[in-house]
């Protein structure tokens, strides 16, 4: 009885979690008339891969993908490095201003992001960073950082302090102890932090829309959005593109799902 109830719940939620994506799959496989089918079947005799071939052959989708890949990779690397060092410092050391710093990290999440767009634009254009990936990278890395730091700090809290103490007795410097002993042990958290940075830049739209104006430089969300027009959206193309955008992230998630449980540790606000 208890078992079958559990199975039922899990299967129900699996359906709940998968169905919307299957729906997108079925739209992407329909030809011209993307909406307006009353059947729940995903495929029918008219299913076609037309939208996908159109996507790759007639739109700069691959170019956008490379742009996104480039931006996300740089953001991920810088995010992981910066979050690891500062998360470690917060976790291990007592110093003046620590509590304020930790609170201020949380505070940065509280400001409505949409209101930051206009000032972002003004700063970037003063620094001549409009239409450059660098501008985008700077903003992405710093906006993803607060959560990443929190997350790294939470993980380091769970690593026993004795490890570095032993290392220091063996003659390691503080940095060596961090770099050689603690960091290699923190793979799960590093992977998860990387995943967060990656995801936030892979699917970000608002900042990209104000920063990048040259279609050659578009990232995937911008490109995808260009299939949408106020009164004439290319729904089939959009759905096909949406799948192609989502799949890498889903694959990434599946690949590292073994780290997810051990690596995701949202630290408490208190030190």
């Amino acid at each position: 009885m208890k078992k079958s109830l559990s199975w039922f719940t899990i299967l129900l939620f699996c359906l709940f979690s998968l169905f919307p994506m299957l729906y997108v799959v079925s739209i992407s496989l329909r030809g011209d008339n993307a909406f307006g089918s009353r059947s729940l079947a995903l495929f029918n005799s008219q299913s076609t891969l037309k939208n996908f071939s159109e996507l790759f052959l007639h739109t700069p989708f691959l170019k956008w993908m490379m742009n996104s890949l480039y931006v996300s990779t740089v953001v991920t690397l810088s995010g992981v490095i910066l979050a690891a060092t500062s998360g470690y410092a917060i976790s291990r050391y007592e110093f003046k201003g620590k509590k304020i710093m930790l609170m201020s990290l949380l505070t940065t999440q509280m400001f409505p992001a949409t209101m930051l767009m206009l000032p972002f634009f003004i700063v970037l254009s003063k620094l001549h960073l409009i239409n450059k990936f660098l501008g985008l990278i700077i903003i992405y890395s710093s906006t993803a950082l607060p959560f990443c730091i929190w997350q790294m700090k939470g993980y380091f809290d769970t690593v026993p302090k004795e490890l570095e103490e032993a290392a220091k007795l063996d003659g390691c410097s503080s940095f060596q102890a961090f770099y050689k002993i603690i960091l290699p042990m923190s793979t799960p958290a590093l992977v998860i932090t990387g995943l967060f940075s990656f995801m936030s830049s892979w699917s970000e739209y608002l900042v990209a829309a104000i920063t990048l104006q040259d279609p050659e430089l578009y990232t995937l969300p911008l490109g995808l959005k260009s299939f949408q027009a106020s009164l004439a959206t290319q729904w089939g193309l959009y759905a096909a593109g949406a799948l192609v955008v989502s799949i890498p992230v889903v694959v990434l998630f599946i690949m590292i799902s073994k780290y997810l449980v051990s690596g995701l540790t949202v630290g408490s606000v208190k030190g």
């Binding site: 699996c14 979690s17 998968l18 989502s246 992230v249 889903v250 998630f253």
Partner: peptide, 12 residues
């Protein structure tokens, strides 16, 4: 299977 909603970009 259950983390898939998390992986899909929000606007999609």
């Amino acid at each position: 299977l259950l983390i898939i909603p998390w992986a899909v970009p929000q606007y999609i």
